[in-house]
């Protein structure tokens, strides 16, 4: 029962592991070069799922402040998102000893929150504003994954280009046939 609960609690992590294994299996054991590249794509997508899972928390929304939240309120923007990241890391990790330093998280956050910082500063003298950090997901892993998606697309592109060159030379996409042709050419 405990095992099932453990799985249900973190099912997105389980899915990421399963997806990754599917991808890895395809990359290692498939004979067709294109299928290997498909496996590679699945593998990379699994990592994206992992990163997005890190930043997620239940009932949270995108880290943008609404107009009415900002108006008539004093707030220290940075501290809001700081604790958001803090909570987030803790929640995901599920480890009692994980007294994650809030300061640590704000580094990660700062860049992402900077654009609404400017926005916020102009309203600083409007009294106080309570923002619940649990309402916002951590944007940083999403930003990282944008880069990773670009990298993944580029890798796939290079992989397909190389496959095309191989196909032009050998007239087949099966690895075993290519190896046979190389052997017989010797």
């Amino acid at each position: 029962m405990e095992l099932l609960e453990g799985i249900a609690d973190r099912f997105n992590y389980w899915i990421y592991v399963i997806l990754m294994m599917i991808g890895l299996f395809a990359m290692i054991s498939k004979n067709n070069l294109i299928k290997k590249l498909i496996g590679m794509s699945i593998f990379q997508t699994a990592i994206i799922l992992f990163y997005v899972s890190i930043s997620y928390k239940e009932g949270a929304t995108i880290p943008i402040l609404y107009h009415d939240q900002v108006h008539g309120a004093h707030h220290e923007e940075a501290s809001v998102t700081e604790t958001a990241a803090h909570h987030d890391a803790e929640q995901v990790a599920h480890e009692a000893s994980a007294d994650v330093h809030a300061e640590a998280s704000d580094h990660a956050e700062h860049a992402a929150s900077s654009d609404h910082d400017d926005h916020a500063v102009s309203h600083e003298d409007h009294g106080s504003l309570e923002i619940d950090p649990d309402l916002f997901v951590n944007p940083l892993p999403h930003v990282l994954m944008l880069t990773a998606i670009v990298v993944g697309v580029a890798t796939l592109g290079v992989g397909l280009a190389i496959t095309q060159k191989l196909y032009g030379e050998f007239g087949t996409l099966e690895e075993s046939e290519i190896l046979e042709q190389i052997k017989s050419a010797k």
């Binding site: 990592i47 990241a85 890391a89 994650v100 640590a104 990660a108 892993p141």
Partner: peptide, 16 residues
């Protein structure tokens, strides 16, 4: 990708 995953795990705990 393994490296990237490893960095993800570090980020989970340290937030940096």
């Amino acid at each position: 990708s393994f490296y990237l995953l490893g960095v993800g795990y570090l980020y989970m705990k340290t937030g940096s």
